[in-house]
């Protein structure tokens, strides 16, 4: 029996986890090596009874990230939330779904409010309590961008998490600066000479964050829990300004099936449109390789916001441009094994 156990350990080291290498848990590995989400002790920072839509990627991403942060800090987290879906569906009076200390102030000031929280903790001699600011892409890349940049350049001890669902979903699916080209939103209808969101617009806040030279920047996805948790853990192990952008599909805004939330997040990574990478002090240090590359069509097709692209010749040409964007990401971040090695 002893000998058997020894052999098992040896095989664990060899990563023979055909089953469960990418799953949330794995009964064959020790608890520490399983995802936080596999544990019955996870904090469920965001608990049952919230009013997010069915299959909400943001609800999932927020619990993933906050639970990991809670694990990393021994439960010493204070969260500041920007206005948006996450705020509205978690805290409509008289019920809150949060189990951590949590503050909502305004749409555009989450980063600054978190700076205040961190300052208060420092001055109170409780620097073990860590501040996390969180918001959607609207609250981050648009209205909250000034405060975000200020927090970055001051290198305040805040982890800012952007749950990126690529639009203003709470207000009825309008365009944000994180809306991808071609996507139909309520303010970029699939009409006119350039239907959907205009190509050549938008910005990459992760890249802008990298340009601030802050200690840590990463992108993550609800489709790769292990990677996401590792990045949150890494972020919580560092002091100073940190930024994490998590891709969270929105069934309502994207016009996708509620059960496809994780699948779409996965396809976004696997086609190259949402690159997963990490950067430290202004330098990109790693990227998550694509395991099974797919054409962007596979990602776009299950989403009604892109349906108009599939009905015309011009639309097909735009899909080609989106493929070009994916290809560029793949080259820039070395997302394929071979290219990474080259």
């Amino acid at each position: 029996m002893n000998e058997q156990t020894t052999t098992l350990d040896a095989t664990q080291k060899l990563h023979f986890y055909q089953k469960g290498t990418f799953t949330v848990g794995n009964r064959l590995v020790s608890d520490e090596r399983r995802a936080v989400q596999a544990s019955t002790d996870r904090s469920n920072a965001l608990t049952c009874g919230h009013r997010a839509c069915q299959g909400c990627g943001e609800a999932l991403g927020a619990r993933y990230a906050m639970d990991a942060a809670m694990r990393a800090t021994g439960g010493n987290v204070i969260a500041v939330n920007a206005t948006g879906c996450l705020e509205v569906f978690t805290t409509p009076y008289p019920e809150t779904s949060w189990q951590t200390p949590w503050l909502h102030s305004l749409f555009g000031n989450a980063a600054a409010v978190a700076t205040g929280v961190a300052a208060a903790m420092r001055v109170k001699g409780r620097s073990e309590v860590r501040a996390i600011a969180q918001g959607g892409d609207g609250g981050t890349t648009d209205i909250g961008f000034g405060c975000l940049s200020g927090m970055f350049e001051r290198n305040d001890d805040v982890l800012y998490i952007c749950y990126d669902n690529e639009g203003y979903m709470n207000t009825g699916v309008q365009r944000s600066s994180a809306t991808p080209p071609g996507a139909r939103t309520a303010t970029t209808p699939a009409m006119g000479p350039e239907p959907g969101n205009v190509f050549g617009t938008g910005k990459s806040v992760p890249k802008i964050a990298v340009a601030h030279g802050i200690p840590y920047v990463a992108t993550a996805t609800v489709a790769d829990l292990h990677d996401l948790e590792r990045k949150v853990m890494r972020a919580m192990g560092i002091h100073g300004a940190r930024y994490l952008q998590i891709h969270v599909p929105c069934p309502l805004g994207w016009g996708s099936a509620s059960h496809d939330t994780i699948r779409l997040a996965r396809l976004a990574v696997e086609c190259g449109l949402f690159p997963l990478f990490e950067a430290e002090h202004g330098v990109v240090t790693s990227s998550q390789k694509i395991r099974r590359r797919v054409p962007v069509d596979d990602y776009l097709k299950p989403q009604r916001r892109f349906a108009h692209l599939f009905s015309t010749e011009e639309g097909r040409e735009r899909i080609g441009r989106l493929q070009g964007l994916a290809d560029r990401n793949i080259a820039e971040y070395h997302l394929l094994e071979a290219e990474g090695d080259a």
Binding site: T23, V24, G25, N26, R34, A35, Q37, A38, L225, I262
Partner: peptide, 8 residues
């Protein structure tokens, strides 16, 4: 018992 349902 991969915990996927529990996690996702």
């Amino acid at each position: 018992e991969c915990d996927n349902c529990y996690g996702v």
